[in-house]
Amino acid sequence: MSILIDKNTRVMVQGLGRDGSFHAKLMKEYGTNIVAGVHPGKGGSTCEGFPVFNTAADAVRETGAECGVLFVPAAFAADAILAAANAGAKLVVAISEGIPVLDMTRVVSELNQLGTLLVGPNCPGLISPGKSMVGIMPGRIFKKGRVGVISRSGTLTYEVVNQLTAAGFGQSTAIGMGGDQVIGLKYNDYLELFEKDSETEAVIIVGEIGGTDEQDAAAFVKEHLTKPVVGYIVGRSAPPGKQMGHAGAIISGAGSTAADKVAALREKGVPVADTVEQIVDLIRERLGGSN
């Protein structure tokens, strides 16, 4: 098992510009089951062996695509998410960065009504190693295994995963949930899925400054998880009021500092690592040996 995606997940790539085509190729090489591309004006052509359609509705109808992955410029991305959801996609993965917050509040409201799940936006996507990669993650550093990873970041996820893999701990599914203020699925949604997933034996939460999602996750872990969870929070040295790259990574309001989040996790019994190396140590203590 794994969560959200596996080798059968039928994926359509929305936006086949420079980035979209490049990553479509990498996803296909990884083994992702890409069934369609969507690009207005390129309908009827093919890309990397899969058919391209003008609209998400055509792609879903013709190929049964169930997951859309977006490489659409920010100005058009909110609409593309809605296009995929309204066409019937059950899961949308929005890589695009810079979607206006107000647009995202509208998108999320509509997706809730449609019952479509959203990963991102402003994220590297997700991977179930050995099965499917939907997004822009470097597949070779991942290894099939029993640790679930949920992160607000991209390269930091790779850093964590690389050290996990080097230490022999593979991953069931690793998710970059997005660095924006308003995102689709959050820690708790993924934690619930990991708790139910028979392949996952431990979960790592990689958090950062801004918002209070880590506090929510801490409470959720204490209440609902039987599997061990390990935390890691970055931005301990970030100044208040400054956005640190990610639109959502800003210390503003109660609970948004790294110290607040570390304290909340520890209070609910979730150990928090000070460095990436310590994450691996904490996982080893909980799972014993290696995978």
Partner: peptide, 8 residues
């Protein structure tokens, strides 16, 4: 490269 890694 990357905001999360930069903070880390």
């Amino acid at each position: 490269n990357g905001a999360g890694l930069a903070m880390a």
